[in-house]
Amino acid sequence: MTATATPRDVVNVAPAAGAARAALQDTAPFAVALVPFGFAVGVAATHAGLSATENLAGALVMLAGAAQLAVVESIGRGEGIWLAVLVTLLINLRFVLYGAGIAEWFANASRLQRLLLVFPVVDQSFMICQQRFRSEADLAWRRRYYLTTTALLAGCFVGAQALALGFGDVLPDGAGLHLAAPLAFAGMLAKSVHGRTELVVATTAAIALVVVAGTLGPAALPAAVVVGVVTGARMGRTS
């Protein structure tokens, strides 16, 4: 499914020793960019009434920023487990594609190793590794590169949340931190809209949510998502 080369295709095999350094260089800008987002999640958790232990435990077991933020918001609204799980399912559906990438990159690793390696994959690590693994085929090199990338990303993201949980509640109400979550979602939306189809999907889903919010309550979100996706699928991909 991905355009990356398989281990058998590529002959350029770099020494595994340089993998960690290359990963740090490639990942650093993405890791820095995760800090404000992690801070937003931490602030949202504080506003939702979560303890630091609860939120950090959630961050570590999920390792999925947007979904964690949505779960935190859902808990804050008292919506219950099933809606939080449903929203997580919808937000993280793209991870199926990332898992396919892991299966391909580490095709020569054992099944157990692949099942462990797939745990921390996120948007950034998938994109970074997809670029690198086109020219690097050695399994040990790839494994070290991938693990360094995911560790750096997770460390920055969870560290930023810990910082926010420590200091977020001393910031004044007028700071607008209630906007942290919608702003972070807006940023992710801006990156996920690549053409007219995604724009129509997003607009349709937003309008649908407003239309059905009063009648469907917590079920409005999944209903709006279905309306948006079906509309986009009917249009066909134009981008």
């Binding site: 939306l189 979100l221 996706v229």
Partner: peptide, 26 residues
Amino acid sequence: TAVELTAPAVLAAMIAGALLVHHGTV
């Protein structure tokens, strides 16, 4: 296609909910 379109739909709906829906009322 469905998988790729889900993310913008979810994100836009959550933003609309945060800005326009308060306690179930638009």
